[in-house]
């Protein structure tokens, strides 16, 4: 896509809420073969603040608009960061966009992880695949006030070594020694000498006190359910296990109806919800 500028003409006052604002890509980092992180800045005006766990609607002009979690640091002003995996027409166009390209952005939408609820106890972050992206702001927020937590544990599972997201940062976090970083891959490749197996398998042996834990989980739905069950088996209350749910987020403001999960509008009631609320809904196929 070429360097572009956009003009906007809302049909009437108020309608601009549904129209994206133009953001220019300032940096593009290839995280894995199919995943990039784009840093963006608004062409005009202030960049909105956001809470860790919230998402935005990101548009490739003329192609479409998709919900993408914010993966940047919520505690510091800086460019807006989105980590995007190439899974469809819109994300393909986004992943292909070079620095200088203007994209459309609406939001932020949805609630957040509320990391502060874990202060005084242990924080356990469990991520699968690109599920690490929406959890990165939560980790960065926790690091910004590291002394307020007891243990901070990151359990991360990727399919193969080449799919490990933010590899440099994972190394750096591991070197901090005040965060327990454990990484596993589903399939061994010659370059991997670490752990092999599902991320679920890391939960039983991880060092945390279940009675004083806040757990944040993001990944494929089946992985989240198994991790939640495993955490609860260890004694973490279901109300202290939070999952980030994915549905068809479309308008972002609770009006279009696409993201409903029974009584929940996941774009405003979620995406982050505790497992006591989700358990009866996640166990029903096609709900």
């Amino acid at each position: 896509m070429t360097r572009t500028d956009l003009e906007y003409s809302p049909a009437a006052a108020g309608d601009e809420a549904m129209l994206p604002s133009p953001y220019r890509i300032t940096q593009r980092r290839e995280d894995t073969a199919d995943t990039v992180t784009l840093a963006m800045e608004p062409l005009s005006g202030e960049q909105p603040s956001f809470v860790a766990g919230s998402f935005m609607m990101v548009e490739a002009f003329g192609v479409g608009e998709v919900p993408i979690s914010i993966s940047g640091d919520p505690t510091r002003p800086g460019p807006l960061e989105h980590t995007i995996r190439d899974v469809g027409a819109v994300t393909h166009a986004l992943v292909d966009s070079e620095p200088g390209t203007v994209l459309g952005v609406r939001g932020p939408y949805g609630n957040g992880w509320n990391v502060a609820d874990g202060v005084g106890g242990d924080l356990v972050v469990v991520a699968g695949g690109i599920g690490l992206a929406p959890l990165r702001p939560a980790l960065l927020e926790a690091f910004s006030r590291r002394g307020d937590f007891d243990r901070v544990v990151l359990l991360y599972g990727a399919r193969r070594s080449e799919d490990v997201l933010y590899a440099d940062q994972l190394v750096a976090w591991r070197e901090r020694f005040d965060i327990d970083v454990q990484i596993t891959v589903d399939y061994r490749t010659p370059d991997w000498d670490g752990r092999v197996g599902l991320v679920t398998g890391l939960v039983p042996r991880a060092g945390f006190d279940p009675n004083r834990t806040l757990a944040l989980v993001c990944g494929p739905e089946v992985m989240m359910r198994l991790v939640a069950t495993s955490l609860i088996d260890r004694g973490v209350p279901a109300s202290r296990v939070r999952l980030s749910m994915e549905r068809n987020m479309h308008c972002g403001v609770g009006l279009c109806g696409h993201c409903q999960l029974r009584e929940l509008f996941l774009c405003v009631d979620g995406p982050v919800l505790s497992y006591d609320r989700l358990d009866p809904l996640m166990t029903v196929p096609e709900l």
């Binding site: 003009e7 003409s9 049909a11 549904m18 129209l19």
Partner: peptide, 19 residues
Amino acid sequence: MLGRRSRNGNGAPTSVGTP
């Protein structure tokens, strides 16, 4: 109609129609 948007390739302003 919620709105109409235009882009151009060379930075020159593009006229935008009314809905």
